[in-house]
C-alpha cells in the first residue's frame, strides 16, 4: 500500500476512495484531529501556535504570510511522506478546499514536482464525466504497489 496525498487536501470523497483501494490517504482531517485533540496546547480552535508558521518556513519564505506558512507546516510534511498523489482541479468548495489560494498553489506545486506518480484530473461536470473520473482514480490506485516493501 502507498501513502497517497490528495488535493484538495481535505476532500472526504478522495480520502474515502484512496482508503477503499487499500492505500493510506494523507489528508488534512487527520492532521486537524491530531491538533485539536492534543492536550495542553492553548491556541483554539485549531491549536496552531506561533511555532507552526515558523515550521512552515521550510516550505515558504518569511515574506509569505503566516497563514500560508501555518497551513504549510501541516501540509508540507504530508507531501514529504507521500508516495503518490491525486490532484483534482477546478472543484467546487464542497468537494474540499483549504480556503487559501496561495497555499493551494504551493501545495499543488510540491506534489507535482515530487518524484512520484501523480494523477491530475478536472472535477467532473456530467454523469459520464463522473464515471470516467472515478474510473481513472480507481485505475491509478490499482497501479500503485499494494504491499509494503519487504512484506511480500
Amino acid at each position: 500500500m502507498a501513502n497517497v496525498i490528495i488535493y484538495p487536501t481535505n476532500s472526504l470523497i478522495l480520502s474515502d476512495l484512496v482508503k477503499r483501494f487499500g492505500h493510506t490517504p494523507l489528508a488534512m482531517m487527520e492532521k486537524i484531529k491530531e491538533k485539536i485533540s492534543t492536550v495542553g496546547v492553548d491556541s483554539p480552535p485549531l491549536n496552531i501556535t506561533a511555532e507552526e508558521p515558523k515550521l512552515g518556513l521550510k516550505y515558504a519564505a518569511v515574506e509569505v504570510p503566516a497563514g500560508v506558512r501555518g497551513r504549510m507546516s501541516m501540509i508540507g510534511p504530508m507531501v514529504e511522506r507521500s508516495e503518490a498523489g491525486i490532484i483534482v482541479g477546478e472543484s467546487p468548495m464542497a468537494f474540499g478546499c483549504m480556503g487559501c489560494a496561495r497555499t493551494n498553489e504551493l501545495t499543488k506545486y510540491l506534489i507535482r514536482t515530487r518524484d512520484m506518480p501523480v494523477l491530475e484530473l478536472a472535477f467532473p461536470k456530467t454523469d459520464e464525466e463522473g464515471q470516467e473520473f472515478v474510473y481513472r482514480i480507481a485505475e491509478f490506485l490499482r497501479s500503485l504497489p499494494q504491499q509494503e516493501e519487504g512484506k511480500e
Binding site: 515558504a60 515574506e63 509569505v64 504570510p65 496561495r102
Partner: peptide, 11 residues
C-alpha cells in the same frame, strides 16, 4: 516585497 504569490514563485 510583500507579495505572497510572488514570494512563492520567486523561491
Amino acid at each position: 516585497f510583500r507579495c505572497a504569490e510572488a514570494a512563492i514563485v520567486r523561491n
